[in-house]
Design a protein around this nucleic acid. Structure first.
Lengths: 209, 209
DNA sequence: GTTTGCCGAGACTGCTAGTCTTGTCAAGCG
DNA sequence: CGCTTGACAAGACTAGCAGTCTCGGCAAAC
């Protein structure tokens, strides 16, 4: 009956949260994620490295995956790169792809990302979180392409979703398997052939002559 | 000293291998792989479904991953599709991509393949085996493209490896994330834009006119 | 100075890969 | 026929990890 009243009059008592511990956990998680040579990162290891009890980790995050993703996005937010509109699709696309490739070459980010994907494969909750993460990136690229199409640099019927997936498909495929390079030269070739393959129908008709 | 002689004179004694058990294990593995709703397939479950002791599984395969991959390739060998040379790159490529997409839409194969990838993420040995598996597929596609380039349907400087990775990149990216279709229409569009984006420099010059 | 609730430490449960043990059974050999 | 060899089913066992639970300590509010 009076519970609501009691809560209203007593918004908080007891010891406050320790923000230092919160940061220490994120830092330790990112560090271990980066150090990891493919070995899964354990919650025990994170807690120990952060000098924190395991229960403190689970008080703030619902699962191991949530901690790891939080650690990575915390870092990704630091090097957010927005892609200015250069006015030409080819240059916009080259810049976008090049930046994406570069960001993943950073050794810390790279090995963290690889480990994270591995964890996502066995943790449905983390997989869902990562889906949302990648969807955001896809949307950004899709917008860039839509701008180009409005300027007439792509055919009206061009399948923008497919182009997006060709970019991220190549990226993840090479990133995870590591059988081919992800350097600026590849970024340029990829951007150029995508533009060339999806340009105006009129131009295609001429070419097919 | 005489060990070699002893082995030569006594090539085998004792109870023979039970081929029925061998098949039962592969069948059970494939079945569970296909049934699995993302839950990892356990060796215990395979052994129990095959009516076999766990040790019997480990006598023939070095790890869980090896059993699973063997089960899948055993099936994949059944629907081996060789891609005849139609004489035109566009049609060859359309057929190759279409077949690849189709094969993965088979619900049994699809869920087995998905589970297998998930397992590979945590099992380095299986990951290595799958690398070899995918490399074979990449080579086949690369050959197909090389034939087209020799006929002058692709630019001399076209990056065949990049084209291959665009195909398999899109495939795996959509297959695993499931955010976009992998139907015949997509296969055709992908084939067409790849050919258009990597054709003869002369044609490109005309187009850019 | 008492209550409340966060904290570190670590015990505990439940699950799975892979190994080891035990008793059984089939195939060859003398 | 009886012995040896090695595959077999069943299942106990070890080791590692996610997530929960418990406990004594400590800091903030009242």
């Amino acid at each position: 009956m009076n519970e609501t009243d009691a809560q209203a009059t007593r918004p908080h008592t007891g010891r406050r949260r320790n923000e230092a511990a919160h940061r220490a956990i994120l830092d330790a998680a990112l560090h271990l994620l980066a150090e990891s040579d493919g070995t899964p990162v354990t919650i025990d290891a994170i807690a120990r490295a952060a000098g924190v009890g395991k229960q403190t980790v689970y008080r703030w995050w619902p699962s191991k995956g949530a901690v790891l993703l939080d650690a990575l996005t915390d870092r990704a937010d630091q090097d957010v790169t927005d892609h200015p509109d250069t006015g030409a699709l080819r240059t916009d696309l080259r810049a976008f792809i090049g930046t994406t490739f570069d960001a993943a070459q950073q050794s810390t980010t790279a090995s963290a990302l690889r480990t994270l994907v591995r964890e996502a494969a066995r943790d449905p909750h983390l997989a869902e979180l990562m889906q949302a993460f990648t969807a955001t990136r896809r949307d950004a690229l899709h917008d860039l392409l839509a701008r180009g199409r409005e300027r007439g640099e792509l055919a009206d019927h061009a399948d923008l979703d497919l182009i997006v997936d060709q970019v991220y498909g190549v990226f993840w495929y090479r990133f995870l398997l590591g059988h081919g390079p992800l350097d600026p030269a590849v970024a340029e070739r990829l951007a150029d052939t995508l533009v060339a393959g999806n340009d105006q129908p009129g131009a295609q008709a001429v070419r097919r002559r």
